[in-house]
Design a protein around this nucleic acid. Structure first.
Lengths: 217, 217
DNA sequence: CCCTTAATACCGCACGACGGTATGTATTTG
DNA sequence: CAAATACATACCGTCGTGCGGTATTAAGGG
């Protein structure tokens, strides 16, 4: 195999293949050899030239998955024309309206048989997304009076756990009705915290998304 | 090594060692050979006589961990002198007062580096404990009027996610204050659902437990 | 523009460790 | 005494990983 003048293409190819296989068979049941076989001529040395371990590959895969989501979160977080509560509402709306999610749905049946992948999403959500993006917004909400709580860190965690993990149809293999019901319960929970951030448009879009997901499984 | 007249002792020994190692080093970083080395003379043949795979061992470990908790849940669930809401309150009180938890705390630093273990707890909570124990109670609460919700399954899942996963100090490496704060947020969430099941005695006990855990890490 | 040199991209093999199995053997049970 | 049980031992295929080697590219001097 000839050497590639643009190594980033090779890296992306490896990540594409790895992502696909991790989703289909799970991280632990995907061997390096599996990845090689789907690489079209590239060898084991190529992989270990670009990545220092199998672990390193999954880290990169997760990074690529969450990158644009995090960019959106940062953009909303850094706006200065919204209150904390309005930012929360904007984020929930964006994350549901974002068309990219459809691509992921079509490729990813579910995370159910991939403990490692679920674990990484879990960590990324709780250790990165929550404190870096949502917490500052909730703190701002406390300052500007749009959010009331004595425990911003914990409220952030619980909300992220519900929204990013529990309501993630890739993790929980939900049907249309289940997704809808979760959203209703989520809404009630948020209202219990004084946060009415769910409107009818969001509910409609959710049902639409769940339907798309339903078709491709 | 001489053959044991009571094979269940051997099984228990294997599970003890496996549990300990899984907690210390994580499931994926504990090899069968690791387990053998801590077995005191027993060999690989012994393990594969009693368990058909490494996977089978972790399943048994999880079973043993959740067994007595599940027995308690079943006992409360099957009482007929309490309303649904009262049963929920009883369960939360029991699960925090139960002294057994102290043993686990002293042995188990955390689940942080064990994706597989976390995954199993996760599945056991959502797929077993939630529908088998908590859901019937919530359904009863709807019948007897002590609980109001249109979505019993989803409410069950969310509550279990918060109580069994998020507030589990073995999974989240919480300090005393963090545990306490989580509990306060949890209380607020439950009240948002019309469920005032947390009282002062529970809060006191929680702080006590968190302190014990804090000492042994 | 060519030649040299260093860095890079990739190959392919070999290694040790791993999970798992097949077979053998001693002990217990009935 | 025979069948079942409780182990031991030797072995297999595969895995993740490291390394020596090679071909391609980029950089710079003349």
């Amino acid at each position: 195999m000839a050497r590639n003048k643009h190594p980033e293409e090779t890296v992306n190819l490896i990540l594409d293949v790895a992502f696909q296989l991790f989703m289909e068979k799970g991280y632990e049941h995907t061997s390096i050899q599996d990845i090689i076989n789907h690489l079209g001529g590239l060898s084991k040395g190529a992989i270990y030239h670009h990545f220092k371990s199998k672990e390193d590959i999954i880290a990169a895969v997760i990074d690529r998955m969450t990158e644009e989501s995090n960019q959106m979160l940062a953009k909303v977080r850094d706006r200065d024309d919204l209150t904390g509560k309005e930012k929360l509402k904007a984020i929930f709306k964006e994350s549901i309206l974002r068309p990219v999610q459809e691509d992921i749905f079509t490729v990813a049946p579910n995370f159910s048989n991939s403990p490692r992948l679920l674990f990484c999403i879990f960590r990324e959500t709780m250790d990165e997304a929550a404190p870096d993006y949502i917490l500052p917004i909730i703190r701002q909400g406390i300052s500007d009076g749009s959010i009331q709580t004595d425990y911003p860190e914990e409220l952030t965690e619980l909300v992220m756990l519900a929204a990013n993990i529990w309501m993630n149809p890739m993790i929980f293999d939900d049907t249309v009705e289940e997704s809808y019901r979760k959203f209703m319960v989520f809404r009630q929970m948020m209202e219990g915290f004084g946060l009415d951030i769910v409107d009818e448009e969001l509910l409609d879009r959710l049902q639409e998304l769940a339907f798309i997901y339903q078709k491709n499984r």
